[in-house]
Design a protein around this nucleic acid. Sequence first.
DNA 1: ACAATTTCTTGCTTTATGTCAAGAAATGTT
DNA 2: AACATTTCTTGACATAAAGCAAGAAATTGT
Lengths: 191, 191
Amino acid sequence: MKLESALLTNFILSTVPISSIEAREITNSFQPMKLKKGDFLLRETHISDDYIYLEKGLMRTFVHDLDGNEITTDFFLENSMVFEVTSFFNGVRSEANIQAITHCTGFRLSYQELNKLFHQKSAFRDFGRAILVKAFMASKKRNYRMINRTAEQRYRELLSTSPQIFHYAPLKHIASYLGITDSTLSRLRRK
Amino acid sequence: MKLESALLTNFILSTVPISSIEAREITNSFQPMKLKKGDFLLRETHISDDYIYLEKGLMRTFVHDLDGNEITTDFFLENSMVFEVTSFFNGVRSEANIQAITHCTGFRLSYQELNKLFHQKSAFRDFGRAILVKAFMASKKRNYRMINRTAEQRYRELLSTSPQIFHYAPLKHIASYLGITDSTLSRLRRK
DNA sequence: ACAATTTCTTGCTTTATGTCAAGAAATGTT
DNA sequence: AACATTTCTTGACATAAAGCAAGAAATTGT
């Protein structure tokens, strides 16, 4: 048994009610991977083949808007799953980039490996579905917050739930994630 | 074979590459259902047990914000799947309501039935996952639009992609969906 | 350690959207 | 048909956030 994967096994067990043996089997299907700060896990126009458990580090997804500006659409904290749903599950070219904000370590599954597990192991089916549901829920919550919270409230919420992000990510990434300009974010910070 | 389910079978076949026989088997697991205009498929605080193919009609999801106002978070057009992901898949009380805007007809699966199919039929696994992925993609796109489009652009986009909504839904539902007030929407319409 | 680059702050001005309120139009009910 | 209710429009005013620009501070590369 690989020592490094204990965090992943715990993550799986905390996600879905399966046995430790099943969780360890799933863990062992993943392969270790790492990224240096600034490295890309995925570049736009490429096809994603990475379904990642991020053990340590911080990552972000960003897209380019019509004027060529980067818009950060998601931050990924450690002890969570990282994947670009559209490109990974549909095998199409990605419009999004995924980049390491800090040095990152984690574990990886390819689409082929994931599919094999998905059809063979009922425990993995439940896990995979739970991960999809969780990410979908997070996206819906984000939508809702954009509508019924002010920029300042969104800022405060992010600050209190994910202070790590403020420690490592530049303001412009955070600002575009919050849907405001970096000038506005700078002013919010002063308060 | 039930005549009414041909649209659902076609929908399944257009979603995922499986055989007609498999699609028809899946179709036959669903039970017909209908709702009158204004009826609720789901009320907040209840637990959703409905995974619906909406064959005909128009529905919406809404939540209440802190001031008690209704915020429409989604419209469902005909020939699509309708479900409240959080409550349905996690078996928790819903914060959202799902309401029929027009008379609706469709086909239903309970969570128990869905799970049985999910673990028994690989064709259904692929379908179920594709539906989750599609809904998740739509949510991400919506997030992105809220950040990098003006209210007017979002209005025009909705108008051109889903004119049915404007035919049946009152302005205040559409306005809250777009993240603006009904006054602002009224002014946008004038143009 | 220095220069180059990027990030952050701040002031001024403009614009989009919200708030409140009132009346008109449409819709539903008996 | 008459009334009640809801929906839609419009005006006057307030405000949050954007746009632009310049300088200060921090970070990075050599």
